[in-house]
Structures are given as C-alpha cells and as structure tokens.
Amino acid sequence: MIDLVEFVTSTLSDIGAPVVFQAYPAGSTPPAQYITFHEYHTGPELEAADVEITTERLINLNVWSKSNYTSLVNSVRKTLEKAGFERTFEFDAPYMDGDSHFNKVMRFKFIDEY
C-alpha cells in the first residue's frame, strides 16, 4: 500500500496552495488559500478467498480560501482525478460570522493494492 499522506501531498504540491495533513499550515496567520485533508475510511475493496486484493481508501479534503476558490477547487479535482482518485462528494460548507475562510469540502476514493 502507498503512503497516502505523501501521495496526496506530493500530487498537490504544484497546486499553488499549501497542503497539510490533519492540521493547519504553520504560522500565526493562515494563508489566503490552503488545503487540509485526512483519510476517514480504509477497507477491503476486492477480496478473493478471504484475502484482500485491493483496498478502498477514502479521503476528506477541505479547500480553504478568503475569496473565490472555484479555480483552486477545479485544479484540485483535475489533479487528483489524473492521479487515480475518484471524486465521490463535494459541497460548500456554510460560512459563519467570525470565520476567516470559506470552505469547500471534497471527498475522494482511491483504490490501492493491498
């Protein structure tokens, strides 16, 4: 199985925004745009004779932005799909007074060899 944290981080390294696993970017003030992600499910995708052949790995990815994030969201989607991910879900999280960034929530599936 691949190191999914390294794979997602390196795949999105040229996207133009920091990509951070399960945290916010370092520093006292978050950048204008950044991406956070985590793996929220791992389980058998294909089994034969009770042996796992491939594994379904699901990630939750958040695009954070102080302004319109449409271009960044489209770049993330295209880049991850090109790397073998399948987008399964996407929505705009509600913006609340006091929030510093808008938030697009995206979920992707990756099939990995066990």
Rank of each mutant, 00 (worst) to 15 (best):
20 V>F: 03
41 H>L: 15
12 L>M: 12
4 L>S: 02
91 F>E: 08
59 I>A: 10
77 R>I: 12
54 T>A: 03
1 M>R: 04
26 A>C: 01
43 G>P: 14
17 A>V: 07
106 M>S: 03
32 A>E: 14
68 N>S: 12
71 S>Y: 04
25 P>W: 09
89 F>K: 11
91 F>I: 06
60 N>M: 06
105 V>R: 00
103 N>P: 00
16 G>M: 05
18 P>G: 06
106 M>T: 04
62 N>D: 14
47 E>R: 15
39 E>F: 05
75 S>A: 12
10 S>Q: 14
22 Q>G: 00
85 F>N: 02
24 Y>H: 11
15 I>M: 08
46 L>A: 11
35 I>L: 10
44 P>N: 11
16 G>H: 05
22 Q>K: 07
113 E>V: 01
24 Y>V: 11
81 E>Q: 10
4 L>I: 11
52 E>S: 15
7 F>Q: 07
110 F>P: 00
5 V>G: 00
13 S>E: 14
21 F>N: 02
76 V>R: 05
3 D>W: 01
68 N>F: 06
25 P>K: 10
53 I>M: 13
107 R>F: 03
10 S>R: 13
25 P>N: 08
39 E>Q: 14
65 S>T: 12
3 D>T: 01
78 K>G: 02
86 E>V: 13
30 P>Q: 15
69 Y>M: 12
68 N>R: 11
100 S>P: 08
107 R>H: 05
15 I>H: 09
108 F>D: 03
19 V>Q: 08
96 M>Q: 14
57 R>P: 02
110 F>W: 01
35 I>G: 05
26 A>Q: 13
102 F>E: 09
60 N>Y: 04
10 S>E: 15
50 D>S: 13
86 E>S: 11
45 E>I: 03
72 L>S: 03
65 S>H: 07
82 K>R: 10
105 V>Y: 00
36 T>Y: 03
83 A>W: 07
105 V>T: 04
1 M>K: 07
81 E>C: 03
28 S>F: 13
19 V>C: 06
28 S>L: 15
32 A>N: 14
111 I>H: 00
72 L>H: 05
56 E>I: 09
97 D>H: 13
21 F>D: 01
12 L>Q: 13
26 A>D: 12
13 S>Y: 07
73 V>C: 03
1 M>V: 07
15 I>V: 15
113 E>D: 00
